[in-house]
Design a protein around this nucleic acid. Structure first.
Lengths: 337, 337
DNA sequence: GTGAAAGCGCTAACAT
DNA sequence: ATGTTAGCGCTTTCAC
């Protein structure tokens, strides 16, 4: 290829990286030769010589979960203009797989890693960082700021949902929640109780928890009966995610309970179909795309600034009010006057 | 690191690649040194020396679309045991971005590329292949078998949906479809008409097409009125995707039309929430995960077998019958006897 | 303005 | 069983 243009390989390199210092005639000749031979420079050799390889590792729990893919979309958006490429690894929550992939990413010398850790223990992730690879945790904080992270305030999310219901005339809220071993579930529960307290209510009375083993629509549907059977009466339900809420809507419908009149329902996550349901589902939205963008930016910052100090970027969730929780009891009573 | 173990770098290489030929004492010493220094071999240097880099490029239209992410999950599943890593690129259907990413993947010397092309013209994709990079098209066939591809038979899918309705006692089916410039839309339409013909019906009468500008739930909802206004009466609707069908269910509900009794509804794609709706939505399922797996396998085959001949792996869609299209008119009449 | 040459980290062939 | 060395494709001085 260099011989085709009758130049040295050094000149070819200059055409690619320093076009201005090459005589335009030579440059054109080299460009033509590149074109005709289909020459493509090798990132590997470039990198070996001391350059960058413009790739970022992204380790998530599940490629087919919209929560993660929206974050990936955000990260991709933030990185593509800088010529980065994403190396995507889905661990399916397997710690073995996570370690496997982190190892591969390190061998590939990615310039940074965005990771949603599969386990509580962050030893392996921290080890990466201590070996000099910029690492940012997604949807998870690092104890003692030992790493950068982007998170969403789940306590606040739980509070938003409960406060909306309680401040809107509902008196007793059933919280259909998953196991407290899931941090998100525990946090949202705390938030719900905090909302009650801040409104001057007794959390033990205002929030009644209904535990389900998994956050699926089936369990939401089954929980509908338990909500109605609750002694003392309940006039609103908040669910730990939208799948539960969807099942709950179906279950309540099957039991002849009208939503939102007899029972308000609120979900969490604001997945795509929440707005499409009838009644459209009120839900707590997490800024997923923004999480990805912020994660990517922290990564860039960390890799550019040697004096970088780790920090946590914390996002606020947002309540999206829709039909499933409006037209509360109060307006109804007004109507009947 | 080599000096820490007091061996030459050649021996370190052997410990990594050919452990059996190294004396076990030395091997342990080297392993210990590797451990204590946190040494990780460089894929780039390995690759430069003539090795593989164990990465596969995946170019899709949209990372946050479940259709693509399920395929990615399939590809990841098929490749992870071989130590591959996926380089994921989302083009948002932009041809510019597609070219950008294909170029980067080529510089990275990925060992193969799975791609859903953003445009009809395949020149750039074919160019890759002709430069020796194994390339497989996803959800798109290559004219004249010039490339490997994995596809789903959309004509058959349209036929399945229409045949189900027409053979089940429905007489006239409205087909709410997107623009025919989208291949999938055109194919599904052909299939629906074929179903009518095969049942001895006049396609122009049995299938009435209702065109919408985009495959969204809003347009589905708007189309409900047009379906009812159709002269000659219509007792079933098939939609070009599940979003349209969801909107249609909502629209019909709003107009007081009962599904499935007065109107059967069928969607396409069988997205996650189709089964969760009430009535649960009958839909045509595409084997997305399997598409990804098959694509990955074609890639491996192509890169291993030099005498490889391109082929198309074509999948059959599957009709998933649920409540929205059952309890057809016929059983209803029976009940009233 | 261009060429020659060293060296990035690794592997494999050869020498010891 | 281990060390030595050439060279993969590139970038970057340093000569010319």
């Amino acid at each position: 290829m260099a011989e085709l243009a009758a130049v040295s390989i050094g000149t070819v390199s200059n055409v690619l990286n320093n076009p201005s210092i090459v005589a335009s005639a030579t440059r054109d000749r080299v460009l033509a030769a590149i074109e005709s031979t289909g020459f493509v420079r090798s990132t590997a050799a470039h990198q070996l010589r001391g350059g960058r390889n413009r790739s970022i590792g992204v380790v998530i729990l599940d490629v087919s979960n919209p929560f993660f893919t929206e974050m990936v979309r955000g990260a991709e958006h933030a990185l593509r203009d800088d010529g980065f490429v994403l190396v995507l690894c889905s661990t399916d929550e397997s710690v073995t797989r996570e370690r496997h992939y982190l190892g591969l990413l390190e061998e590939h010398r990615v310039e940074g890693i965005l990771v949603t850790p599969a386990e509580r223990d962050l030893t392996h992730v921290s080890a990466l960082a201590s070996r000099g690879i910029p690492t940012v945790l997604l949807d998870r904080a690092a104890p003692g700021r030992s790493l950068c992270s982007v998170t969403v305030d789940d306590v606040r999310g739980g509070e938003l949902a409960a406060a909306h219901l309680l401040a809107d005339g509902r008196e007793r809220v059933a919280f259909v929640n998953g196991p407290p071993s899931i941090r998100q579930c525990a946090d949202r529960r705390r938030g719900a109780r905090r909302a009650a307290r801040r409104l001057g209510l007794d959390p033990d009375r205002a929030i009644v928890e209904i535990s389900v083993p998994a956050l699926t629509d089936e369990h939401g549907e089954l929980a509908a009966r338990r909500v109605l059977e609750r002694a003392g009466g309940v006039d609103a339900v908040m669910c730990a995610n939208d799948l539960l809420a969807l099942g709950m809507l179906r279950g309540l419908d099957g039991l002849g309970v009208s939503v939102p009149d007899a029972m308000a329902v609120v979900g969490y996550d604001d997945v795509a179909f929440a707005a499409m349901l009838s009644p459209a589902l009120t839900s707590v939205r997490q800024p997923k795309f923004e999480l990805g963008v912020a994660g990517a930016e922290l990564l860039l910052e960390e890799s550019r600034d040697p004096r970088h100090v780790h920090r946590e970027v914390r996002f606020e969730p947002e309540l999206v009010v829709r039909a499933s929780s409006t037209a509360a009891k109060v307006p109804k009573i007004r109507r009947s006057r």
